[in-house]
């Protein structure tokens, strides 16, 4: 992982620390691994017995865990942003009183 979102980082810092190139490589590897995990299931589907323990009806379709994981995290972050609007206060909120 690297500094792939900090557009303000100076060139000198970027060359010393996590480079944009390094970040790109990490991102490509992450995508490759994610795709591989899905492909493995599609190419070598689980046997009928394997579904009994780890799957329930709602998630009994190919790559269901991938979809669930992605959607879950997007929802988590979006709700987190809403929660922050409600609960965030200044750092010295309790001390100030």
């Amino acid at each position: 992982m690297g500094d792939f979102n900090d557009k303000s980082a100076s060139t000198a810092a970027a060359s010393f620390w996590v480079t944009r190139r390094g970040a790109r490589v990490a991102l490509i590897m992450l995508h490759a691994a994610a795709i591989a995990a899905v492909l493995l299931e599609l190419l070598m589907p689980f046997g009928a017995d394997d579904h009994a323990v780890e799957r329930i009806h709602a998630l009994d379709f190919p790559a269901s865990y991938a979809v669930y994981g992605f959607v879950a995290c997007v929802i988590l972050v979006l709700l987190g942003i809403v929660l922050r609007r409600i609960v965030m206060r200044a750092e010295d909120f309790y001390e100030a009183s």
Binding site: M1, F4, N5, L27, L30, H31, A33, A34, A37, V38, L40, E41, M44, F46, G47, D50, H51, V53, E54, R55, A63, S64, Y65, A66, V67, Y68, G69, F70, A72, C73, V74, V77, L78, G80, I81, R84
Partner: peptide, 28 residues
């Protein structure tokens, strides 16, 4: 085999979500 694969799917796509939300600036 299925347990390892579904767990990897869950985690890797969670990581993907983090990366994309960070790239698009949505991540708080």
């Amino acid at each position: 085999y299925p347990h390892v694969i579904v767990q990897l799917q869950l985690l890797l796509f969670s990581a993907l979500a983090f990366a994309w939300l960070k790239l698009t600036g949505i991540y708080p």
